Lab assay of single mutants.
Amino acid sequence: KELVLALYDYQEKSPREVTMKKGDILTLLNSTNKDWWKVEVNGRQGAVPAAYVKKL
């Protein structure tokens, strides 16, 4: 499985998103959308802005 690093804090704004903190390591589930990537963090799945994460 592919991992990404959170470059910034992000507070979810809808139920389809997830909150992450700078430095979090997230499991990347889907990166086909260039703006929003689906990730899993702390057992929750949701979208985060692609510009806020970097593939490891």
Rank of each mutant, 00 (worst) to 15 (best):
L5I: 15
L56D: 02
G46F: 13
T32W: 09
K21Q: 10
K38D: 15
V4I: 07
R16V: 11
K22N: 04
V18F: 15
V39Q: 00
A50R: 09
K38Q: 15
Y10G: 00
R16E: 15
V18W: 09
K1T: 12
K1W: 12
G46L: 10
K1A: 12
L29A: 03
D35E: 12
Y52T: 08
D35P: 02
Y8A: 10
E2R: 12
K1H: 13
E40N: 04
W36S: 03
V41Y: 11
N33Q: 10
W36I: 04
K21I: 08
T32M: 12
V18P: 01
R44W: 05
V53T: 03
Q45R: 12
W36D: 02
W37S: 02
G46E: 04
L5P: 01
L7Y: 04
A51I: 11
S31L: 05
V39W: 01
D35A: 10
V53N: 01
N33V: 05
D35H: 14
D24V: 04
V4R: 00
V48R: 00
L3I: 09
L5K: 07
L56G: 03
D24W: 11
K54L: 13
V18L: 14
D35G: 10
K21F: 11
D9Y: 04
E2D: 12
L28G: 00
L3N: 06
L56Y: 10
Q11V: 14
R44A: 06
N30T: 08
K55Q: 09
Y52M: 13
L7N: 02
K22H: 06
R16C: 15
K1G: 12
L56H: 06
N30Q: 11
L3F: 15
T27D: 05
S31T: 11
K38S: 13
L28H: 01
G23D: 05
Y52K: 07
Y52V: 07
K34V: 10
T32C: 13
T27Q: 10
Y8T: 08
D35L: 13
N33F: 07
Y10H: 03
W37A: 04
L5Y: 11
V39C: 05
Y52F: 12
K54A: 13
R44Y: 07
R44K: 11
G46H: 05
D24E: 11
I25Q: 04
Y8I: 11
L28N: 00
P49Y: 04
A6S: 05
D35M: 12
K54V: 15
P49V: 03
M20W: 02
G43T: 05
L5A: 06
N42R: 11
L29N: 02
S31A: 13
E40S: 09
E40Y: 07
A6E: 01
K21E: 06
V39D: 01
M20Y: 02
V4Y: 09
L28E: 00
D9W: 05
E40K: 05
V4K: 00
V18G: 02
W36A: 03
E12R: 13
L26A: 08
P15R: 09
L56W: 09
T32V: 10
A51S: 14
L5N: 01
E12V: 06
K1F: 14
P49R: 05
A6G: 04
D24G: 03
A47T: 14
R16Q: 14
V39H: 01
V4N: 00
L28K: 00
D24I: 03
L28T: 01
Q45D: 06
P49W: 04
K54S: 11
S31Y: 09
